[in-house]
Design a protein around this nucleic acid. Structure first.
Length: 355
DNA sequence: AAAATTCACAACCGCCAGTGA
DNA sequence: GTCACTGGCGGTTGTGAATTT
């Protein structure tokens, strides 16, 4: 694919992406709509236009919305910006261990159905989950020289990564009160949506890459139910440290657990049997294409006919926390080392004959 | 300290399905 | 039936920060 940003920028695009490029672009491009459209990173001004317009008029037809709001963007671009970034309930930042576990599990069931997976992770966007998968999960697959859809890698995920995530979740829960090392690795993103009392906050600004430290949080204007113009009242620190400080690891874990089992966000996820079933169910077909995600229709049927998760998250964690090994939800025993980013080693996997 | 590399993420694209004229 | 428009989805890429050499 060599179109769009990948195909190199023409002069207009370069103008558009430069600071203050909008005016320059308009001047250079003339009055035609097509050429008048801006591309590239959104500016604070554009974000404000979009946020304020939606606050006043709600979401609607995106193309007309873009025009009415005075944005020189396509409707698609506005929609994406809103859904992935500006929406008040969007959560960004560290993916928690619970969320990682859920992503791994759901991906094993549905494959790259990012939007579907995202529906089960409140506040997370399909784009973020997709990015997580590509940057983290596929990286591990690459390290192991496995194809990400291969049976070997799926086994590794199920037998090594998932159990370790469960361990990590337990450690975080246990460490929440005492604030041990697990606390240091605690999730930091606070669910913006689930707080009934807190007004939504719009995260404006960018703007690209890892510049979260420059994010601007725009508070809603509670007085008239709209959202204040350029009402910058808070600058979040890198990694949303402020939010992290406001929520202990334990709080986060319990919040996530309750959120993840909230029927309003979709079917409850019962993890235990899925994690406990060491791929015998899917093992018959061996590798290759058969190891890949099942088809959509198959999944839908499976989802409706059987819930592969047998217990709630709380139950899972409680069960997994028992000392008696036989009750450890059927997960294979591993020597759980540190909880650094590298959740397994090649030696581990060789020992387990997984890869 | 500078250069090179890696990482994380925003934003784009094409494709496709749904809808209405 | 068909055409145009719109929105949603998954795949891909460019970019800047962070890390390593």
């Amino acid at each position: 694919m060599d179109m769009g940003m990948g195909g190199g920028l023409d002069e207009l695009e370069v103008l558009a992406m430069s600071p203050g490029g909008s005016a320059a672009l308009a001047a250079a491009a003339g009055s035609e709509d097509e050429a008048d459209l801006r591309r590239g990173p959104w500016t604070v001004e554009e974000d404000l236009l979009l946020v304020n317009y939606i606050a006043a008029h709600g979401e609607g037809r995106w193309n007309s919305l873009a025009r009415s709001a005075g944005l020189k963007r396509t409707g698609k671009s506005c929609r994406l910006r809103w859904l992935n970034y500006l929406r008040p309930d969007v959560r960004r930042g560290n993916i928690t261990a619970e969320e990682q576990l859920l992503i791994l599990e759901l991906h094993s069931r549905w494959g790259n159905r990012w939007s579907k997976i995202a529906q089960h992770l409140p506040g997370r966007t399909d784009n973020e989950i997709k990015n997580y998968w590509r940057t983290r999960v596929q990286k591990h697959a690459k390290q192991l020289r496995c194809d990400v859809n291969s049976r070997q890698f799926r086994d590794v995920v199920r037998h090594v990564w998932m159990p370790r995530l469960v361990e990590r979740i337990q450690a975080e829960s246990a460490g929440g009160a005492g604030g041990g090392q697990a606390a240091a690795a605690a999730p930091v993103a606070a669910p913006a949506t689930t707080s009934a009392s807190a007004p939504p906050a719009y995260h404006l600004g960018p703007y690209g890459g890892r510049r979260q430290s420059t994010d601007v949080v725009v508070s809603p204007n509670k007085a008239h139910g709209g959202y204040a113009h350029a009402d910058y009242y808070s600058y979040s620190e890198p990694g949303q440290a402020a939010a992290a400080a406001a929520m202990s690891p334990d709080d986060t874990s319990s919040a996530m657990r309750s959120t993840l089992t909230d029927a309003s966000h979709g079917p409850q996820h019962h993890y235990a049997t899925s994690a406990a079933t060491p791929t015998n169910e899917g093992c018959g077909g061996a590798g290759g294409a058969a190891a890949g995600p099942t088809t959509d229709s198959d999944d839908m049927v499976q989802e409706e006919e059987e819930d592969v998760f047998a217990g709630t998250w709380s139950e899972l964690l409680a069960t997994a926390g028992r000392d008696d090994d036989d009750s450890k939800i059927g997960l294979p025993d591993f020597e759980f080392g540190d909880f650094e980013d590298n959740l397994w080693s090649l030696e581990d996997l060789c020992l387990q004959q997984l890869c």
